[in-house]
C-alpha cells in the first residue's frame, strides 16, 4: 500500500534488527502514525483543472489524478485526446489500442495531436493484438509513475474488461498517480471502478463562425465524489485547456435559448438506465 511506503516490515526482535533500526525508531513511529491517520483517505494530488469553470466546480477543482475515468464517445476520441493532453502535461502520454480500432476508426496521427496542442515527441502508441493484451499493457504502463496519462481505447464490450479488471486498473492508477482514461466506442455503461464517467459527442461549432475550435457536448454521467451535470466544452488548442463556450460570447438573456437549441437529446439507452449506472 502506498500508505506504508518507506516503512520496512516489522521483524521480530533479534532478527534483522540493526542499530540503525533502533536509532530511527522514534522517527518511524511518527511516520507510521501519520500514515495511519491518512489511511483510507485518497492521496493528496492536485486535480487537473479543465479550464471550464462550471465543470471544475462540479469536479471539485478538476479531473482527479491517479484515477480511472471512463469516456463513452460515440463520435470519436477527440474529447478523450484533449483530456489526456491536459492530464499528461509535460510527461509522456501513452495510448493503448487493439489493432481493430486502428483499422476501423483510423490510425492516430501525431500531426493531428500536435495540432490539438499535444507534444508528439512524448506520445507513445501501443498497438495490442487484442483487448486482453491491451489490459496487460495498460497495467504495466500505469505502474510507472513517470507516465503522465494513459488512454486505453476499447471498442465494444470485451469480456476481459469486467469489474475486477477495472478495479485492478483503478488501484494501480491510484498507487502510481497516473491518470487513466478508458475510451469506449459502441458500448453502454456497465458498473465499473471509474471515478467519473463521461458521455462526449462532438457538436457543430459556433453557428456564426466558419470553422471554430473543436466543440463537445458532454454529460458527466457519474462522479464518485460529487454531483453530475451537462456541459459544453470548447477546446482551446492554443492554450491547451477547455473553455466554456457559453461564458463570454452571448448575452445572458439569449443563453437559455441557445442552450436549448444546442443540446442534443440524450440517447435512449442512457435515459432508461438513469444517471446512477
Amino acid at each position: 500500500m502506498a500508505a506504508f511506503r518507506g516503512v520496512p516490515v516489522l521483524t521480530p526482535m533479534g532478527r534483522g534488527v540493526t542499530l540503525e533500526h533502533i536509532m530511527n525508531k522514534q522517527e518511524k513511529i511518527a511516520v507510521l502514525r501519520h500514515d495511519l491517520a491518512r489511511y483510507g483517505l485518497p492521496p493528496d494530488r492536485p486535480p487537473v483543472p479543465l479550464g471550464h469553470g462550471a465543470a471544475d466546480a462540479v469536479l471539485g477543482g478538476g479531473l482527479a489524478r491517479g484515477a480511472l475515468h471512463e469516456i463513452f464517445a460515440p463520435s470519436g476520441p477527440g474529447f478523450a485526446a484533449c483530456l489526456a493532453i491536459l492530464a499528461a502535461g509535460a510527461k509522456p502520454l501513452f495510448w493503448v489500442r487493439p489493432d481493430y480500432e486502428a483499422l476501423e476508426f483510423g490510425a492516430l496521427s501525431a500531426t493531428g495531436l500536435l495540432e490539438l496542442g499535444g507534444n508528439p515527441a512524448r506520445f507513445f502508441v501501443m498497438r495490442a493484438a487484442n483487448a486482453g493484451d491491451a489490459l496487460i499493457a495498460a497495467a504495466d504502463i500505469l505502474s510507472c509513475a513517470h507516465v503522465g496519462a494513459l488512454v486505453l481505447e476499447l471498442a465494444g464490450a470485451p469480456k476481459c474488461l469486467d469489474l475486477v479488471a477495472s478495479r485492478r486498473l483503478a488501484l494501480i492508477a491510484e498507487q502510481s498517480g497516473v491518470t487513466l482514461l478508458v475510451l469506449r466506442h459502441n458500448a453502454i455503461p456497465k458498473p465499473s471502478a471509474a471515478s467519473t464517467r463521461w458521455l462526449a459527442r462532438s457538436i457543430a461549432s459556433r453557428a456564426d463562425d466558419e470553422w471554430g475550435d473543436p466543440s463537445f457536448a458532454v454529460q458527466l454521467l457519474r462522479h464518485r465524489q460529487g454531483g453530475t451535470g451537462d456541459f459544453y466544452f470548447n477546446w482551446n488548442a492554443r492554450n491547451g485547456h477547455f473553455v466554456d463556450p457559453l461564458r463570454f460570447q452571448l448575452p445572458l438573456a439569449s443563453q437559455e435559448g441557445r442552450l436549448r437549441s444546442l443540446k442534443p437529446p440524450p440517447p435512449p439507452a442512457l435515459r432508461a438506465r438513469g444517471k446512477r449506472a
Binding site: A81, S109, E115, P120
Partner: peptide, 20 residues
C-alpha cells in the same frame, strides 16, 4: 522538428485520426 501548421489562433488544421 515538429512544427504545427496552424497559426497560433487557428483551430486544428490536421485531423487526429487518419484512415490507413
Amino acid at each position: 522538428e515538429w512544427k504545427a501548421r496552424r497559426n497560433a489562433d487557428d483551430p486544428p488544421l490536421r485531423p487526429l485520426r487518419l484512415l490507413e
